[in-house]
Simulated assay, not measured.
Amino acid sequence: MEPFFYWMKYKSLYKEEPVWWDHKPAAVQETIRQYLLTRLYCKVRGRDGHEGVYITSKSSKTVQLFLSAIKGFYKTMIRLNMYYFDNPLIGLDGPVEMKDYPGVRPNRPRLSPLAGTEEPLSFRRETDSYFKIINDEWIPEIIGDWDLPYRVYQAGEASGWSLRDEVITRFMFETGARISEILELTIGDYRNRTDIHELAAINKGSFKRRIKFIRISPDTLKLLIRYVNKDRRQSAKTHMKFSELTNEEPIFLSKRGTPYTYSAFYSNWTTIIKQAGIKLNPHKARHWFVTSMLRGIYESSETAAQIEDKKKQLVAYMKWRDPETLNIYEHYYDEQKFRELHEKLQENYSQREKEYFKSLKAREKLTKPVQPIHINLDSSDLKDDWVHDFFEGME
């Protein structure tokens, strides 16, 4: 929020007057509208009781976070009796109450979803925000560079990365787990799985509960064991081997012996990516994993039934709340298959074109008419010879 309040102090105007955070809602709303337009590069369209915010290609990725933070700020100021108006981030058209939707029993209210006797409502809960993001549809990024992990590994070696960061990076590409899920792995997460290549892991929104597992390759497992028994021991406050550590001990530690944080890892990650000469945030490794897995499913399956079965396994492994998430990746794969088909077709077109013109030239040589010989009678020598031969022929 600091950039916004700094901008508000020096740049904002409402009715040709500067605006501060404790002014009336209309002034604050106009200031936020100006900020969305000029600083976050959104498009804002007024509607009945609220403003529609359209995210553009130039918009900041923190638009939703910014609006949520400002809304929470004013809620707090109102609760502390420091802002004496209605929350400027809450619109006039509030959300539709659940009671407005009838239940299956005539003239009776809907039962709680916990009862399980009525079909759950399929609509999303409406927001009461004054600024509503209209086109905020999440679309995963598709990473189709199949050699991407190896480029990152090579850059890591060239930059002198630590064994810890190498293990974490390999976890990212091999498991499809979020970086936060990897950094929070514990010794117990490895022990709690019967397969030596698997670890239990948290999932987004699981409240630290281990509700899924991740799999690593044999080579990455060897690196993990070497890290825990050697490099990690040098950083840890208690120099214990893997068999001596408690289940609660985090696997990855900083050089000070504290749990390895995302900010510390990202600093090292930036160095590696700069060495590779690419722009890549850690989360894109997850998208690369899904794209690669989907490609492997299609290439290794012989029937449509096998494809569907493997896709269900992938959805279960990723712990997606909405199975439809996979459809977007499939759309990419369908496009990729069309590109390959189109490239092959273009190659055939090109080859056929060369053969056609080659055969055309051959036909032209066979059917080319004999050009008549033209005698120039303007030459006196030729003219006399012709007359002489003519008279000899007459005799």
Rank of each mutant, 00 (worst) to 15 (best):
Y54T: 01
N107F: 15
V44C: 06
Y74K: 06
I70W: 00
K71R: 15
T127M: 05
S122V: 10
R47S: 07
T62W: 01
R125E: 14
V44W: 01
S60F: 07
M98T: 14
Y74M: 08
T127F: 02
Q64R: 06
M82F: 03
T127A: 11
G52L: 01
N87H: 07
I134K: 02
E97C: 08
K61D: 04
M98G: 15
P102T: 08
D48W: 04
I143G: 03
G94H: 13
L114A: 15
K132H: 01
R125N: 13
G52Q: 02
N135V: 07
T117F: 14
S129N: 11
F85H: 07
G91R: 00
E118H: 07
S129Y: 02
D48P: 05
I133Y: 00
I55F: 00
L37E: 11
S112K: 09
E141G: 12
E119Y: 11
G103Q: 07
I142K: 04
R105E: 15
P106K: 15
K132R: 15
E118Y: 10
L36F: 02
G116R: 05
N135W: 05
M77A: 14
P106A: 11
E137T: 12
D136H: 00
L40D: 00
S129A: 15
S59E: 05
K43V: 14
I143P: 01
P109I: 05
R108L: 09
V63I: 11
G72C: 10
R39S: 08
P95Y: 07
L89W: 03
S57H: 12
R79C: 07
S59W: 02
V53C: 06
R45F: 06
G103I: 05
Y54C: 01
V104A: 12
V63S: 01
K58M: 12
L89Q: 05
F85P: 02
S122I: 15
R47D: 07
V53T: 06
I133F: 01
L80T: 09
N135P: 04
E118P: 07
T117M: 13
L80G: 03
D93T: 15
I55V: 13
E97A: 14
V53D: 00
S68I: 01
M82R: 09
K43T: 05
T117H: 13
